[in-house]
Nucleic acid binder design. Structure first.
Lengths: 219, 219
RNA sequence: CGACACCUUAUGUU
DNA sequence: AACATAAGGTGTCG
C-alpha cells in the first residue's frame, strides 16, 4: 500500500533472514540472546530471542509461522486535547512499533470527550491488524467498551442513566462496532504519568489542536 | 471587633445620618422613596422607605429603635453533605443577619437525606426567633412541610405511598412540629445556583462531613 | 414515571 | 483554586 507498510514488510523479511543465517551459522545457544543483530531482529518481529531460536530454518522463505505469537502485542496509544473545552481540539494516535505509525486531526469547535473518542476511532480505522490494544487515558472511552455502557445505551434508545440523550452518539455509533470486534482490546492508563507513547500521542493531539485553532480563528 | 464589622457599623451610622438630614431638609413625601440616597440607606439598614420616614428625627443619635422591625425577614439557610451516600456526612446552617449565626455537625455513617433534615432541624432548634424562613435546596425537606406529606404519614402510621415505613422517621418526628409551628416558613432554592448563603451553608456542611470522615476512619 | 439532592470516576482546560 | 465534558451510582418522596 503505502510507504510505511512496505518498509515494515521489508524490515520483517530482513529480520527473518538474519535469524535464519544465525541458525545456519551455528551460533551457540548461550550467545544467541546477546547478539545485537538477533536483538534487532526480535524487536522488529515482536518476539523473544527464545521464540526466534525455535523458528524453522526456512522461516526466511515461509514467513513467521502462525504458531509463534508475537510476545509484544500491537498497541495504539491515543489521546485528545481541547483548548478551553469546549473549544478548538485535536486528536492523535501512535503505534508501539519499531517504526511507529501515527495519525492526527482537529476540529475548530469541539469538546475534550469528542477528541478522546475520535483518537481511538481513527486509530482503529487506520490500523487494521488484529489483535490490537487501544490504549487511552480516558475512562469515558475505555469504560464504554469494558463496562459495556454501550449495551445499556442501545437497549434504552441511547439514553444515559439520567435518562438524558447520550452525548456524542454519532461518534459512539461508529466506534462501538470497531471496538467490540474480535481482536480489539481497550486499556486505560493514567494520563501525565510519563508513559512515552502517551506523551507522544498527546503531542500529536496538541499540534492538531493548535492547527485547528489557527484555522478556526484566523487573525 | 474585626474590620468588616466595624465597616458595617459605620455604614449603618451613615445611613441613619442620611435619613435624619433628609427629614430635616424637608424632603417631600412623594419624592422620598425615589431618592437614591434614601434607597441606599434603606438597603443598608434592611428597612423600607416607609419605615425610614417614620424614624424619629434623632435616630442618628439613638440608633435604630427596636419598634422598627427590619423588613428583611430572618432566614436560615441550610445544607447537607454526604461522602459516598451512604457514608460520612455533615450539615450546616447560617442566618442572613449582618453578623450571621452559624451551626454545623456531622455523622460518620449517614445519608444525604438525613443530613438535609438535620440541617433544618438543628437550625430551628438553635434560632428561635419567629417569624423565620428556613431555606433548603432539598425538595425532600421542603415538600414534606409545604405539600403536607407528613399529614399522610401520620394518618397511615408512618407508611409512605408504597406502604413501606417512612424513612428517617426519628428526624421527621422532631422536625415536623418545629417546622409547622407558627411563624415558620420553608422555602426551596436551587442548589449550586450561586446563592451566597447556600454556598456558605454548603461549606459548613462539607467541613463537618470531612471532620466526621476523619473521626470515623482514623488511619 | 417524575423531581430534588448527595456523590464516585476520569479527562480537558482556565 | 476554579470550571467544563461526560459516565456510573444511591437516597427518598409522590
Amino acid at each position: 500500500m503505502n510507504e510505511p507498510d512496505d518498509l515494515r514488510a521489508t524490515a520483517e523479511q530482513l529480520a527473518l533472514d538474519t535469524i535464519s543465517m544465525a541458525k545456519a551459522g551455528g551460533m551457540p545457544d548461550d550467545y544467541w540472546p546477546r547478539d545485537p543483530r538477533i536483538a534487532r531482529a526480535c524487536l522488529v518481529l515482536g518476539i523473544t530471542p527464545e521464540e526466534a531460536r525455535e523458528l524453522p530454518a526456512d522461516a526466511y522463505l515461509t514467513g513467521l509461522p502462525r504458531a509463534v505469537t508475537p510476545s509484544v502485542p500491537l498497541e495504539v496509544w491515543t489521546d485528545g486535547a481541547c483548548s478551553g473545552n469546549p473549544g478548538p481540539g485535536g486528536w492523535g494516535w501512535i503505534t508501539n512499533e519499531a517504526e511507529p505509525r501515527k495519525g492526527s486531526g482537529g476540529d475548530p469547535a469541539t469538546t475534550n470527550q469528542r477528541m478522546e473518542i475520535a483518537a481511538a476511532l481513527n486509530a482503529l480505522k487506520s490500523v487494521t491488524e488484529r489483535p490490537i490494544v487501544v490504549v487511552s487515558d480516558s475512562t469515558y472511552v475505555v469504560n464504554c467498551i469494558t463496562k459495556k455502557w454501550y449495551v445499556g445505551w442501545q437497549r434504552n434508545g441511547w439514553k444515559n442513566s439520567k435518562k438524558e440523550p447520550v452525548a456524542n452518539r454519532d461518534l459512539w455509533e461508529e466506534f462501538v462496532p470497531l471496538a467490540t470486534a474480535a481482536g480489539v482490546t481497550l486499556r486505560w492508563v493514567k494520563g501525565h504519568a510519563g508513559h512515552p507513547l502517551n506523551e507522544a500521542a498527546d503531542q500529536l493531539a496538541v499540534a492538531a489542536r493548535d492547527a485547528a485553532k489557527a484555522q478556526g480563528a484566523p487573525v
